[in-house]
Design a protein around this nucleic acid. Structure first.
Lengths: 358, 358
DNA sequence: ACAACTTGTGCAATCGATTGAAATATTTTT
DNA sequence: AAAAATATTTCAATCGATTGCACAAGTTGT
């Protein structure tokens, strides 16, 4: 049984089974017969409060199980210590890894995360962004949805003075900090590796063109071919192939050509997997008949047989870098309009699916 | 250039590049020469406000890009429309799937999510719970960390009148709603299936005993053996084996026994995978020499060769059920102390690793 | 002994939206 | 045209913590 005296002439008996109203600094102040401001200052170790009252206040706060009402504090101070996160899907390995890395850093700095998903649609992205602005988050980090082709909602974010950081799927239509991986380099080294393994007819499963990450992977592919003086063949490039099913179909199409490719560089591990399934089902040898390289280094790539060579994106590290950038931006907000681009070098993880020589 | 008159005698010129202070209902009120309360009511379509003023207010609100300050609203109303989520790790497939399902339901009901991870430690769990209480979330949903063996922090949640729902990893030490899968049934049907395939010497990789989910899976294993009159052999049960590496080692140990098992039911897909790797490396045939069944139906189980038979937990559905339960509890809060247990039946997904007959 | 600090605490405004009750305006009724 | 009923709007308090400023008591210096 706890006894609270908020109105001195109106005691309330709180049964421990009832929802007890939260203890406030005013409750503590009343009991100790001091002012709420003193309680507030005592709790935050203000130098002008005597050690004696600090002790008393803290002791009572502990005894009553006082928990500061952050909402009230937020309103007054104008900060929420919360970061908004917008991703296409939470349960996608890459995104949850980035978020995991991000969380570890910002939570240690006292920030909490509010996570939303867009399901790859523009409408939900806009909706989420607005909700986060309303919630007065201290910053927003986002990876664009595939359906996003307009960017005005980000202007809204910036007009509200909220730091905005893109990661992975970014746009150059908005001036803001970004953390991306060097997809061009990733594509380049993947294809370069295939060439080194002796492949001469390398096909490519490209992703949706308007997402920079995919167009860069394709550029990397093209650059590598040029550099090594291999002709670029349009019929070896299949667009918008990033799922297992479309990868399967695209592979069948390629293997139906008169002049079959001897390697495929897929912009997605899943489409590479689809190709692998098709090839195995139809008696092609991997990597001897067709070598395969995917992109993203999904967990399954090391578990399937043969292991799928893939480009690792250091997703956890991306999260950490985004976090650092964010912490830096809120520190200087709103003074400097720093825009930094962090480009992370991916790593090619070579496995059996492309390793011809030992 | 936007012109705001907050103090009538102190105009502020806001350059569009500056961080513009957020528009409030007071700004709108001043401009329209009406009171802030009217603006507030107009915006929320209060019946006692004339259609005329509603129109004017809404028009101006739109023009000024007014965004309600939810923090202020939260403080006044005493709700935050936010759910706190505590999971061991965000980037674990199962959890991110549950969260994904959960999000879809609650976001449509106007709730946002605050997600925290414990990294399987008790301390971080307590810390996260306290932070969520401070943030005044409207509810907390949690899957226990492996390191949690004390439960007082949940009493704190309940004392604050915050609905609390456990999912997957729950405890019966706290009276509260839960959504779990029927692990016992899952274990039972996995082992029953192995017996039907002709296996007689079935080993088990169990998980940490103090997590109910694992002890139930083991019970299911034991029950199935009893029911089918197969002797239980202690040397076929290896405890605390849930990772790929420990699965590999445990499998080596089992295959070193004089009387080798002819099947393994692993409480985790990862330890089953470890076993599979060991068996393949050492020339054993799967499922003919040793049949394998895992648990969780991780994405990789369908991608590896042979496909790993596994128990699907309907993770997405768990999230949806938790969400429904949550929405129901906040609706009735704080009146009724409803405690419901939702038990979801898992599905055995049979693949090559255990299919002996065709 | 008196000015000049230092130390410790309280007062009251503030953040922005919400809401019960009171006040004013408008329409209807008699 | 006055009374009654209804429709709109405003007032003022509130949520709980924070903070500039004022004030009182105690110290130091000359």
């Amino acid at each position: 049984m706890v006894l609270l005296s908020k109105n001195t002439n109106n005691f309330k008996y709180i049964n421990s089974k009832m929802k007890s109203p939260q203890v406030t600094i005013h409750d503590i102040a009343k009991i100790l017969k001091i002012s709420a401001s003193t309680v507030s200052r005592a709790l935050s170790d203000h130098p002008r409060i005597s050690t004696d009252t600090k002790k008393k206040v803290k002791a009572l706060a502990k005894k009553l199980g006082y928990q500061p009402n952050i909402v009230a504090s937020n309103l007054r101070v104008g900060k929420t210590n919360t970061v908004g996160i917008v991703v296409p899907r939470i349960n996608r390995n890459f995104f949850s890894n980035v978020i995991g890395g991000f969380e570890e850093v910002v939570s240690n700095a006292g920030y909490r995360m509010m996570i939303t998903q867009t399901n790859e649609t523009y409408n939900k992205e806009v909706e989420n962004i607005k909700a986060l602005i309303n919630a007065r988050v201290d910053g927003i980090i986002i990876s664009l949805s595939a359906g996003t082709k307009a960017y005005n909602h980000f202007k809204l974010v910036q007009r509200n003075g909220i730091p905005l950081i893109f990661f992975d799927r970014a746009t150059d239509k908005i001036e803001s900090s970004k953390v991306v991986i060097d997809d061009l380099d990733g594509g380049y080294s993947a294809v370069n590796h295939l060439i080194s393994q002796g492949c001469k007819k390398i096909a490519h499963f490209a992703g949706p063109e308007h997402l920079i990450i995919y167009s860069n992977r394709k550029k990397g592919y093209l650059n590598a071919l040029k550099k090594r003086n291999i002709d670029i063949r349009d019929d070896y490039i299949v667009n918008d192939i990033i799922t297992k099913d479309t990868g399967f179909d695209a592979c069948r199409h390629l293997m139906g050509l008169k002049d079959k490719p001897d390697a495929i560089f897929a912009a997605s591990d899943f489409s590479a997997l689809g190709a692998m399934v098709y090839l195995k089902e139809n008696g092609y040898k991997i990597p001897d008949d067709v070598a395969l390289v995917g992109f993203a280094n999904e967990p399954f790539t090391s578990l399937i047989e043969p292991g799928l060579t893939s480009v690792d994106q250091h997703s956890n590290e991306i999260g950490i870098e985004v976090a650092k950038l964010f912490l830096d931006e809120v520190k200087h907000t709103p003074a400097s309009k720093i825009c930094r681009d962090i480009i992370i070098k991916p790593d090619l993880i070579i496995r059996k699916s492309s390793r011809k020589k030992t």
